[in-house]
């Protein structure tokens, strides 16, 4: 494809990204840097503020059986409830990523089984990359930017909840130094989704061809958008390796939670994705 085609592809994916992802990096950074006027996020930094902040977390709750809830310590129930809210938001985010994937030219023409495989293996990687713009070294925006939850608070939760977010913070702080903007992110997410080495793919060639075109578009985009940032394309591709390790560790933690938490009930969509994943 010539440069004009690659630019058109970049524009198309950026438009799809804006259409399907409600909290962009531009918006998130404005909130994090206090440039949104009176519209400041509610800060959750301890159990009391978590309780107060629950009303902001506008997600469908997965009910915990009343009896079990009564037999639990109040803070344990609160942690589980919060974890369930996170799951609901993650399931919604999977839907957004699916819509974005479908907007990648050629994606819906792939074998339907391969579309499922690409999403199954790609979606958690995409969600972790999309967390980065919401994070800084001190905490993360959640609930569409209405809440800022501190990193210290997340670290203070009981194990293994306390271990869930710290690797994402470490990754995100480093990833954010690359200073990608939303239009770069759109292309990078498409590259991740179109990974031809996912286990069980039936027809790898068309996936690799699609990915190659998006990779060319990303390379050109980075040259134009970040002319002074040397080796940015190579650095970004390197992140894909780190990302796989983070997803593997994340899935193992969720599997551990499933074993250790009697009240743990995994969202059916997330269950589907994580079953036999790694």
């Amino acid at each position: 494809p010539d440069a004009a085609d690659l630019r058109a592809l970049a524009r198309h994916l950026y438009e799809a990204y804006l259409k399907y992802f409600p909290l962009t990096k531009v918006k998130a950074r404005a909130i994090l840097s206090g440039k949104t006027g009176d519209n400041v996020p509610f800060v959750i930094h301890d159990m009391k503020s978590l309780m107060e902040g629950e009303q902001f977390i506008n997600c469908k709750q997965i009910p915990i059986q009343e009896q079990q809830r009564q037999s639990m310590a109040p803070s344990d129930a609160l942690e589980l409830r919060f974890f369930h809210s996170c799951q609901s938001r993650s399931a919604e985010a999977v839907r957004e990523v699916t819509e974005f994937a479908k907007s990648i030219p050629g994606f819906i023409d792939l074998d339907l089984n391969d579309q499922v495989t690409l999403l199954k293996y790609g979606v958690i990687e995409v969600l972790i990359i999309m967390m980065a713009p919401l994070m800084n070294k001190d905490g993360t925006l959640i609930s569409y930017g209405q809440i800022f939850m501190t990193r210290e608070f997340l670290k203070s939760l009981r194990k293994p909840f306390s271990q869930m977010m710290e690797p994402k913070f470490e990754f995100s702080v480093k990833f954010n130094t690359l200073e990608l903007d939303d239009s770069d992110m759109a292309l990078f997410l498409a590259v991740i989704i179109l990974s031809g080495d996912r286990p069980g793919l039936l027809n790898v060639k068309p996936i690799e061809q699609l990915q190659e075109t998006v990779l060319h578009s990303l390379e050109l985009q980075l040259k134009l958008n970040h002319p002074d940032s040397l080796q940015l394309f190579a650095k970004l591709l390197q992140k894909m390796t780190d990302l796989r390790q983070i997803v593997t560790d994340h899935v193992h933690l969720i599997q551990l939670l499933k074993k250790t938490e009697v009240d743990m009930c995994l969202h059916p969509l997330l269950q589907e994705i994580m079953k036999d994943l790694y």
Binding site: S88, T98, L112, N113, V116, I273
Partner: peptide
């Protein structure tokens, strides 16, 4: 694979994604 991933499959098939998550 489609059988084991019914919700993902539904999300892929429905253009407006009215799947009840």
């Amino acid at each position: 694979l489609k059988e084991k991933h019914k919700i993902l499959h539904q999300l892929l098939q429905n253009s407006t994604s009215p799947v009840d998550l």
